[in-house]
Write a protein that binds this DNA or RNA. Structure first.
Lengths: 142, 142
DNA sequence: TCTATATGGTCAAGTTACTTGACTGTTCTG
DNA sequence: CAGAACAGTCAAGTAACTTGACCATATAGA
């Protein structure tokens, strides 16, 4: 159970720091959940239902999240080529800028880890984590 | 950012599996957050304010959580020896049984990891995590 | 000691990020 | 070309928090 707490502590700390870094770069109106949505949208966009599956929430919740990021100018809805029911959600330039800010912030934080334990160790840690739960839920379950 | 997602995936997966294991052992009316509260209460109890600090929530939220676990029979409030303002929250036998169930479930899950990557690797992983964010937030920040 | 401030806890109300349920319009399947 | 499956939306409900106001006790300073 201590291992579980350690994992949560690291995940929570990292998420918080990245969010702080993103806010420090001028994007103060978004939450970490939006960042994980951006990650799914970045390579070519996605539908609301795909986003829902990625985040582990209902399609209604995903749709609400899309409403919000569209309203705030981070994404836009386009007609889906090849499926008239669906709408493709794609990032705007602002959305891509925010995603870059998140990447920068993540590099900063993980760089701090590298000072603590060495670059190779960080890579090894990453590799092990990726093998344990490759399709685990992104959102918290509690 | 992929590292962040991997961490969250593992933390979420582990938390979920432990909770499922606890439910399978007959404790179906609690959430992971309660488990983290139990971990703080187990060695001699704690006040609501201490619990709030441990979980990273307001004292009101902690107090509500205590109300709930008291109502469900997992803990009880006692007068605090040496501070008439405070009340010491201690686990009941049911609370301790639930904590043991959580430990068992955790052992099961982490045992699965050991099959995947070896016992030594799991220990190494644990050690590194503990060094990265020894006082990170237990609760999700998003 | 007495007073001022800090602290532990509770009560009440408000907020937010979800959920469930019902519905429309479009696309697959046999 | 009917009927099931699916993308999306609208509306309402809910759970787990939050903020704010308050009381009782404790601690520190004059």
């Amino acid at each position: 159970m201590a291992l579980s707490a350690a994992l949560l502590a690291v995940a929570g700390d990292l998420t918080q720091r990245i969010n702080d870094g993103v806010a420090a770069r001028g994007f103060t109106d978004i939450r970490p959940a939006h960042g994980f949505a951006f990650a799914r949208l970045a390579p070519g966009g996605a539908t609301a239902t795909e986003l829902a599956a990625h985040l582990g929430v209902t399609k209604q919740a995903a749709s609400q999240l899309v409403d919000e990021i569209v309203r705030k100018g981070y994404a836009e809805r386009r007609p889906h080529p090849g499926d008239a029911r669906a709408r493709l959600v794609v990032l705007t330039e602002r959305g891509r800028a925010c995603t870059r800010a998140a990447e920068e912030a993540a590099v900063d934080v993980v760089g701090g880890w590298a000072e603590l334990m060495g670059e190779g160790e960080v890579r090894a840690l990453w590799g092990r984590l990726a093998r344990i739960a490759p399709h685990g839920p992104i959102k918290p379950a509690w």
